[in-house]
C-alpha cells in the first residue's frame, strides 16, 4: 500500500491529512463547550480593564509572567487558590504564559495595591532590589486605547454572548457615553489610589495613561 501511495501524490496527501487531523479532533472537540463555562459570579472585564489587558499584551508581560496557579502546595502557598477553568471564560486570548521569570500574576490583585504598582512599574528595583524586570516608564505617558477595548467588548458581546450591560452598543456615540460615565470615573479612582499627581491630572483631562488601565487590570486579577 505504501508503495502505491508514493506514486499517487493525491491519495498520499489525503492519507497524511487524515492521520494528522485525527488526533486534534479527538482531543480538542469533546470539551469545547464544557471548558468554556464561566464560574459562578464571574463578571466580564470592564472596558478599562480590557484596555489594561491590551497594555499587558502590547508590552508582552506574558514573556515573563504566568497566569496559571498549578495545584501544588508550594504554588497555592505562594500565590493562593489554584486556577480553575471557569475563571478564564472571558479570557480572549488566554494569557497563561510559558516562562516564569517573574512570579505568577493570576491573583496578584489580592496582595498588591495600586500605589505599589505605580512605584514598581516606574522602577522595579526601587521596590524589589535585584529585580530583573524592566521599568515601564513609557506607560506613564502613553495613552491607553480605550476605544479598541470598547470595540472588543462590543464584539464579544455580539459574537459570543458575553454578558455586558445594555450600554455596550456599536457606534461612536455609545462609546463616548460609556467613556464619560464609566471608564473615566473608574480610571480616576485607580489613579487616586496610585497616589501619583501627574496620573490624576491626566485622567482628569480625559486621557488615561496606559499604566492606569494596566493597574485596573492587575487589580482585577484575584
Amino acid at each position: 500500500m505504501f508503495h502505491w501511495l508514493e506514486k499517487n501524490p493525491f491519495f498520499f496527501a489525503v492519507g497524511v491529512f487524515l492521520t494528522i487531523a485525527f488526533a486534534g479532533a479527538v482531543t480538542i472537540l469533546p470539551h469545547f463547550n464544557k471548558s468554556a463555562q464561566p464560574v459562578k459570579g464571574l463578571k466580564p472585564y470592564s472596558v478599562l480593564e480590557l484596555a489594561g489587558r491590551h497594555v499587558y499584551i502590547k508590552d508582552n508581560c506574558l514573556s515573563c509572567h504566568s497566569q496559571l496557579i498549578r495545584p501544588f502546595k508550594a504554588e497555592t502557598d505562594r500565590y493562593g487558590q489554584y486556577s480553575l477553568s471557569g475563571e478564564y471564560a472571558y479570557d480572549r486570548p488566554f494569557l497563561w504564559g510559558s516562562r516564569r521569570i517573574g512570579p505568577d500574576l493570576h491573583r496578584v490583585g489580592n496582595y498588591r495595591t495600586p500605589d505599589w504598582h505605580a512605584n514598581h512599574m516606574w522602577e522595579p528595583t526601587s521596590v524589589v532590589p535585584g529585580s530583573v524586570m524592566p521599568a515601564y516608564k513609557h506607560q506613564f505617558t502613553n495613552i491607553a486605547d480605550t476605544e479598541t477595548a470598547y470595540a472588543e467588548a462590543v464584539t464579544v458581546k455580539t459574537a459570543f454572548g458575553v454578558p455586558y450591560g445594555d450600554d455596550i452598543q456599536p457606534g461612536r456615540a455609545a462609546y463616548e457615553k460609556v467613556l464619560k460615565s464609566k471608564v473615566l470615573p473608574e480610571a480616576l479612582k485607580i489613579a487616586t489610589q496610585m497616589k501619583n499627581k501627574d496620573l490624576i491630572a491626566r485622567v482628569k483631562a480625559g486621557k488615561i495613561p496606559e499604566v492606569v488601565a494596566l493597574t485596573a487590570y492587575l487589580e482585577r486579577l484575584k
Binding site: 482531543t27 480538542i28 470539551h31 469545547f32 471548558s35 468554556a36 477553568s85 475563571e87 478564564y88 471564560a89 472571558y90 479570557d91 480572549r92 486570548p93 488566554f94 497563561w96 486605547d145 476605544e147 479598541t148 477595548a149 470598547y150 470595540a151 472588543e152 462590543v154 464584539t155 464579544v156 455580539t158 459574537a159 459570543f160 456599536p170 457606534g171 461612536r172 462609546y175
Partner: peptide, 22 residues
C-alpha cells in the same frame, strides 16, 4: 461588529480561556 471603532488591525480570538490554550 463595533461600528468601525478602534484599531483596524485588532482582532479577538474565537476561543476563550482553556479552549484557547488547547
Amino acid at each position: 461588529l463595533s461600528g468601525g471603532l478602534g484599531a483596524w488591525y485588532h482582532s479577538v480570538s474565537m476561543y476563550a480561556g482553556t479552549n484557547d490554550a488547547m
